[in-house]
Computed example of a mutant assay.
Amino acid sequence: MTPAKITVQNTPITITAKNNNDYICITDMAKARNDDSRAADIIKNWIRNRATLEFLGTWELLYNPDFKVVEFDHLRMQAGLPTFTLSIGEWIEKTNAIGLTVERGRYGGTYAHKDIAFEFGSAISPTFKLYLIKEYQRLKEQDNDPQQLEWNAKRFLTKTNYLIQTDAVKNYIIPQTNYTKTTEWLAYADEADLINVALFGCTAKQWRDANPELAKTANIRDYATINELAILSNLQTHNAELIKQNISKEQRFTTLTEIARYQTKVLTEAEKIRTNPQELKP
């Protein structure tokens, strides 16, 4: 699952889910205070502080039954000494802590359970901490909005059905063409745009050219309505079946366009009835 993003005082911050809990990237948070190269130093200085260790230890005692208390007490006794150093990795390894984690890859960095991340916000500034909490709460409210949940569900369904379609392209179109490995993606793009044009009336590139600012962070399907996403999902599944039947691209486009128009009309009428039931009365 793609991590969520919030922006706190112009600083993008990643939020990921782990064991049904939200973990916030404190590496991203640290960048709000200094340049990227100093983020690791800020975290190291924070964790070696006695007050920080007291907070982390208390949190682990509350929520982690496997927390190694003896090792924690040993570290707490050393905290504050000039020679004391501690990394996130050492803290996790020595105490079996779960409140902090280090992730690799595209969204790599040090992540902290939201309770701990809010505490770390104080190391940036009290103001930053308050804005962090505010933006996090806004994200949760948005996630729990019924209409947003419906949109997300249909977007997920669309993406799932896209996998069905691309699998059909891979197995039924590419083997019959002379695409080289480096240009294989063209077949996928063609099929995606076949549906884009059938539903939206333009290709993805045409939409990007017409919406350069929006295209920096999104694509044409991200701005689709809930009804359009439902239709898009249906078109992708239907297109996959047509591909398997060796129906030509021209015939498929005609069929998909007709389906898109019909389903758009049906859903539009249904929406009118739902929002204006008085119109049904004589």
Score class of each variant (00 low, 15 high):
residue 147 Q to R: 14
residue 179 Y to D: 00
residue 162 Y to M: 06
residue 187 A to F: 06
residue 174 I to N: 02
residue 155 R to G: 00
residue 93 E to K: 10
residue 96 N to A: 07
residue 13 I to K: 03
residue 276 N to C: 00
residue 102 V to Y: 05
residue 260 A to T: 07
residue 167 D to K: 14
residue 242 L to Y: 11
residue 271 E to K: 15
residue 66 D to W: 14
residue 178 N to A: 00
residue 185 W to N: 02
residue 233 S to F: 14
residue 64 N to F: 12
residue 5 K to R: 12
residue 42 I to C: 05
residue 86 L to W: 10
residue 15 I to Y: 08
residue 65 P to W: 14
residue 113 H to R: 04
residue 65 P to N: 09
residue 76 R to C: 12
residue 141 E to I: 12
residue 243 I to P: 03
residue 192 A to R: 13
residue 112 A to Q: 02
residue 30 A to K: 03
residue 99 G to N: 04
residue 97 A to L: 04
residue 213 E to D: 10
residue 46 W to Y: 13
residue 79 A to K: 07
residue 68 K to D: 07
residue 59 W to H: 06
residue 147 Q to P: 04
residue 112 A to Y: 07
residue 68 K to Q: 08
residue 267 L to C: 11
residue 51 A to E: 08
residue 34 N to P: 00
residue 164 I to A: 10
residue 34 N to F: 15
residue 146 P to D: 08
residue 242 L to T: 07
residue 118 F to H: 10
residue 118 F to V: 14
residue 47 I to G: 03
residue 165 Q to V: 11
residue 73 D to S: 13
residue 213 E to P: 09
residue 190 D to I: 12
residue 210 A to M: 05
residue 242 L to H: 06
residue 268 T to A: 14
residue 182 T to H: 09
residue 36 D to Y: 00
residue 17 A to S: 10
residue 252 R to W: 13
residue 31 K to F: 00
residue 211 N to H: 09
residue 57 G to A: 08
residue 56 L to T: 02
residue 162 Y to N: 05
residue 74 H to V: 13
residue 211 N to T: 06
residue 76 R to W: 12
residue 117 A to M: 07
residue 165 Q to T: 13
residue 208 R to L: 03
residue 76 R to H: 15
residue 47 I to C: 04
residue 32 A to Q: 08
residue 210 A to S: 04
residue 67 F to H: 04
residue 145 D to N: 14
residue 218 A to P: 02
residue 91 W to D: 00
residue 262 Y to N: 10
residue 35 D to L: 06
residue 4 A to M: 12
residue 185 W to Y: 11
residue 107 Y to I: 03
residue 90 E to P: 02
residue 80 G to A: 03
residue 3 P to M: 05
residue 128 F to S: 05
residue 51 A to G: 01
residue 267 L to I: 14
residue 54 E to S: 08
residue 272 K to V: 12
residue 198 A to E: 05
residue 183 T to Q: 06
residue 127 T to A: 14
residue 198 A to D: 01
residue 234 N to M: 15
residue 188 Y to P: 01
residue 37 S to M: 04
residue 213 E to S: 09
residue 14 T to E: 00
residue 42 I to Y: 08
residue 193 D to W: 10
residue 128 F to G: 03
residue 231 I to E: 04
residue 249 K to N: 07
residue 237 T to F: 13
residue 205 K to D: 09
residue 48 R to H: 06
residue 258 E to P: 05
residue 87 S to N: 10
residue 95 T to V: 04
residue 34 N to E: 08
residue 223 Y to G: 02
residue 77 M to I: 11
residue 22 D to K: 06
residue 69 V to I: 14
residue 140 K to Y: 09
residue 13 I to A: 01
residue 76 R to M: 13
residue 236 Q to E: 12
residue 243 I to D: 05
residue 253 F to I: 13
residue 189 A to H: 10
residue 43 I to N: 02
